[in-house]
Computed example of a mutant assay.
Amino acid sequence: MVKWKRDMGLEGRMVLTMFLLAAVYLLFLAFLASMGTSMGVMLLFIGLFMGLQYYYSDRLVLWSMKATVVSEEEEPKIHQTVTRLCAMADLPKPRIAIVRTPVPNAFATGKSPGSAVVAVTTGLMDRLNQGELEAVLAHELSHVKNRDMTILTIASFLSTVAFFFVRYSMYFGGFGNNRKGGGNIIVIWLVSIGVWLVSFLLIRALSRYREFAADRGAAMITGNPANLTSALMKISDVMPRIPTEDLRKVEGMNAFFIIPAVSGSIMNLFSTHPSMEKRIAALEKMQREMES
């Protein structure tokens, strides 16, 4: 069994992200209340949406990716690999799902380690050797071990509250009696855009750090950072050759993937992942430390 080292940097960032998001949304709710929006409507909508998100988030993620949970009889090799890695990482074995797409990738989802699902694509299994596949699976199990997938799911939900509430509250007459010529609606829309942008940037910053943490976790579990380096390079090399249509079908899940499926260039500030150069440099440093 691997002696797991707690990543205080990741834990601190998760706590800070949730604290800042909570502060932003409390201010947002206070603003809506000051504009005459019914508090009852706000609480009902948010409570319902949070309940659905918490209980069905993993199913929605799998459904959006058209992932199919497979039994050990259907995919014995990958089940055996995950079972061995879980024993090393002291984790309950997650369910395994397969996504039939040429895009080589993997992700983990679920509310907790006990309800986690690790999914891999057929494109990934076709392109990686056993050592590389183990490294990718260990990376996803590190997300489960760190519980950052839960935080990311909750944080991603919070970033949509402003948009959905502003979009639908008008149908409930939620803007109250203070509305004058639609001016308040414009102000609320502007504030909601600001709230969404702050949430978006906080989530992206957390997402980038969590990938570094999962890379370190994979290296600890497998004891061979070079395999993950090789896997990342293979996936990165293949991604530009994947048809744009296939990438666009899955790029909404980029924050969960081991490497983002992007159909165009994006700025680092808005990226869900650190640059490939930085990830490989960190893994190579770990490899040298282990060898010495």
Rank of each mutant, 00 (worst) to 15 (best):
A219N: 10
S275P: 03
R84L: 07
R204A: 15
Q80M: 04
A116I: 10
L128M: 12
S169M: 13
F165K: 02
G114D: 10
H79L: 07
T37E: 08
M1A: 13
F270S: 06
V120S: 02
N227P: 01
F45H: 01
F107Y: 14
V24F: 01
L197Q: 13
D58Y: 00
G264A: 12
Y55C: 00
A87P: 00
F164I: 00
M65H: 10
D7Y: 08
V2S: 09
L62T: 06
L124S: 03
L197I: 14
V118H: 02
L247C: 11
M1F: 08
V82Y: 02
K180G: 06
N254V: 08
F257H: 11
M39I: 14
L29A: 06
T272E: 00
I98F: 15
F256Q: 09
K111L: 13
G123A: 04
L124C: 08
V103Y: 08
L91E: 06
P113K: 04
M65K: 07
V118P: 07
P104L: 05
D215I: 09
A23L: 11
K93N: 14
S159F: 02
D148V: 01
L10S: 09
E11Q: 12
R127M: 12
P225Q: 11
T244K: 15
A138T: 04
A226G: 03
L197T: 14
L228I: 07
A135T: 04
V69G: 01
R95Y: 10
V69W: 00
L137W: 03
K77G: 04
I154Y: 15
K249T: 09
I78R: 14
A138S: 09
I46C: 03
S142G: 14
I242Y: 05
S57E: 13
Q53V: 10
M149R: 01
M14G: 07
V166N: 13
V15M: 08
L124A: 11
S292F: 01
I258Q: 03
G40R: 05
S207W: 06
R147M: 10
F157Q: 03
L10K: 06
M14K: 15
V120F: 06
I185G: 01
K249Y: 10
F163L: 10
S156V: 03
I259V: 12
V82W: 01
G123E: 03
S263C: 02
K3R: 10
N184L: 15
L152I: 12
D148R: 04
M65Y: 13
E277M: 01
L91D: 08
T150Q: 05
T122H: 02
Y168T: 15
G176K: 12
M35Q: 11
A213V: 00
E140H: 14
Q53L: 15
V103I: 10
I78Q: 11
A108N: 06
L27D: 02
I188V: 15
S169Y: 07
I235T: 05
V136Y: 02
S142W: 06
F200H: 15
V136L: 01
W189R: 07
L10D: 06
L124G: 07
A231H: 01
F200K: 11
N254H: 06
R167D: 10
M149F: 08
M39N: 03
A87R: 13
S34D: 07
W4S: 08
I151K: 02
S230V: 10
Y209P: 12
V191A: 10
I235C: 06
S156H: 11
